[in-house]
Structures are given as structure tokens and as C-alpha cells.
Simulated assay, not measured.
Amino acid sequence: MVLPSVISEPSPIDPLVLLPLPNTLPSSPISDLDPLLSALEAHLSPSSTNDPNVTKLPIPVLTALMRQITRRSQVLLNAARVGAAEAREELDGVDGDLRGVEYERERVKEEIDRCMEYAPAYEELDLPDIESFLASADESVLSSLPPKDDEGYEHAVTIARLENELNEITKREAHLAQLTKDRDALIRAKKEIKIKFDAVDVHLTGFGRSANAVAAKLKDVAEIAGSTAVASSTPAPSPAPAMAPSLSS
């Protein structure tokens, strides 16, 4: 058997590359390389080729040892590749988580900055002062407030003032809605009255025209009747006297 002079890189479709990983990985073949090299030198060295005292392993045995070492090395290499791929995937996941955490940190920082710059809008409202509010507030509201020496007393009073203002605004909005509803009802009633008025105006206009036409007819009839009465009361004219015959005739 001729030993190869050059050992190339394994092919991606080499069965050794595609070996499944065993449950227990083999030991490292590094410790077996020196005896194998010594056995190969016994076959390759010119000085030991003709020396009968040198024990030489048969070539098939050396080939089997080389295949065994190659197989173990390939299994360890495949395991290292799988471990590297898993480590790379885990690193990518950790990197993604880190980016997410950094993003959330920036968002939280922005929210903190916004909170630090926050100016309460209720400070611009025209709220009654605390003394006036406490003097006019209901007993139920006052009983719900914490003691004055409590840390949340001012906060609770502010909330109560805002709720009271909200109730007042709600009442005013309800009153405004009722006024708007009444206004719309009046507008609708006005429109209905206008429609009825226009209808009556049209009816009266037609009635006036009819009355004028009847009056004109009555006037014409009266004029005709008057003319007939005058003609009947006037005497007939007398006939002219006859002329006497002349003597010459």
C-alpha cells in the first residue's frame, strides 16, 4: 500500500465530516501520535529499513491506527464546530438581549428626563386655594384625607381639589349641553313656524288674488247692469214732421 505524500483538507461531503456526535466524546489522539510517527519512521527511514532488530508494524495496522486517530480527531473537530456554532448562537442571543437592554435603558433615561422636566398642568388652572377648598369641601371629602402630618397629605389635597374642579367642570358641561339642546329645539321650532308662516303667506296671497278677481268680475257685472238700466229708462225720439207739397207741382 502506497502512503499519500500530501494530506488535503477534508471535503464537506466527507463521511467523517458528517459523523454524528456520540454521547461521550473520545479522548484526544495527541498522545497516540508519537507512537504512530515512530512506527511510520520505521518504515520510511532508510537506516531502519534493512535493520532486522527494528520491530515494524504491518502497514494495515498502521493504516487502521491512522484511520482511528483521524476518526477521533474528526469527531472532536465536529464537536468543536458544533460547540462553536452553539456558542456563536448564544453570543448572538446575548448580544440581542444586550441591545434590547441598552434600548430600554435609553428609553427609561428619556422618560426620567421627561419626568424631571415635567411641569404639572394643574398649576396653570385657576383652582381655589387650600383654605377655601377645605372650608367649602364636603365632610366626606375631608374625612377621606390623611392626617396633616402625613407625607401624602399635600398630594391627597391636590387630588381632592382637582377632583372637585373636575366635578364642577362636568356640571358646567352638562348645563351647557342642556342649553345647547334647548337652543337647538328653539331653532327647530323657529324653522317650523317660518315654514308655516310661509305657507299661510302663500295661501293669503292666493286668496287675495282670488278676491281681486271676484271683485273685478263683480265690478264688470255692475257696470253692465248699470248700462242696461240707463238704456231702458231713456225715452224714444219723436219722428220728424212731413214736408208740405209745393204749389208748382
Rank of each mutant, 00 (worst) to 15 (best):
V2M: 08
P4A: 13
S8P: 01
E9R: 13
P15L: 00
V17L: 01
L19I: 06
P22D: 00
S27W: 03
S27E: 15
D32H: 09
L33V: 15
D34T: 06
P35D: 01
S38I: 04
A39R: 09
L40I: 14
A42F: 03
P46C: 00
S47H: 11
D51L: 02
D51H: 04
N53G: 08
T63Y: 01
I69T: 06
R71P: 00
L76Y: 03
L76V: 07
N78H: 02
A80I: 07
V82I: 10
V82D: 06
E89L: 14
E90V: 02
D92C: 04
E104H: 04
R105Q: 11
K109S: 15
E110M: 08
I112D: 05
D113W: 03
R114A: 14
C115L: 14
A121M: 11
E124D: 15
L125A: 05
P128S: 00
D129L: 01
I130H: 04
S132G: 09
S132I: 04
S132V: 04
A137S: 12
A137W: 01
E139D: 11
S143P: 02
S144V: 01
L145R: 10
P147A: 13
K148W: 03
H155A: 11
I169D: 05
K171A: 15
L176N: 08
L179E: 09
R183Q: 10
D184T: 07
A185R: 13
I193Y: 14
V200Y: 13
D201Y: 02
D201I: 02
V202Y: 07
R209M: 03
A211P: 06
N212R: 12
A213H: 10
A215C: 12
A215P: 03
A215E: 14
G226K: 15
S227T: 12
S233P: 05
T234H: 05
P237I: 14
A240R: 04
P241C: 12
A242V: 14
M243K: 06
S246I: 03
L247K: 11
